[in-house]
């Protein structure tokens, strides 16, 4: 039990992506990562939980106004005999539609402690601007 009044974390079940209308093209399970999306006057920031993902196994791709997040996770070594399993290892995939208010040239990403922070700066024309009255 927690010793302070801070809330206790609970286990959230990983959500596998259902193959809709067709066979999945890759092997293994793919999960929908949990995200927070925060907007401030200058940018929209996406935080995505991607435990187990190495930087080289993460692909961030913008195609026709849609941002694709695809990541793979390596399996445990073959000679490790599973004794107990509470979660499955699998890749992650999620799409975000950007619309035209994001400056796609300036998107930046950082991966730290299994969390991707993706900063999507707003296009100049979309930023709030004070107009002074003459």
């Amino acid at each position: 039990m927690a010793t302070t009044d801070k809330r206790e974390l609970e286990v959230t079940e990983k959500k596998p992506i259902e193959a809709s209308g067709g066979e999945p093209t890759r092997q293994g399970i793919t999960y929908t990562p949990q995200v927070d999306i925060v907007e401030d006057p200058n940018a929209i920031t996406v935080y995505a939980d991607l435990p187990g993902v190495k930087r080289d196994d993460l692909v961030i791709d913008v195609r026709e106004g849609v941002l694709w997040l695809t990541a793979t996770v390596g399996a445990h070594p073959d000679h490790w005999q599973p004794v107990h399993r509470e979660y499955q290892e699998g890749g992650y995939e999620r799409r975000f539609s950007l619309g035209d208010r994001i400056d796609t040239e300036k998107i930046s990403a950082k991966l730290e402690n299994g969390v991707l922070a993706l900063v999507l700066p707003k296009a100049e024309a979309q930023k709030p601007r004070k107009i002074s009255i003459a």
Binding site: V11, E13, L50, G52, Q81, H84, R85, E86, Y87, G114
Partner: peptide, 29 residues
């Protein structure tokens, strides 16, 4: 290898390589 959904965070996987147990837990962030 029973798949058990725990209520207590974090979820654990336990492996055995014959000499050592390996416990893994996903704790992003």
């Amino acid at each position: 290898e029973a798949t058990f959904r725990p209520e207590v965070y974090p979820a654990l996987n336990i492996y055995d390589d014959g000499e050592t147990f390996v416990v893994r837990a996903e704790v992003p962030g």
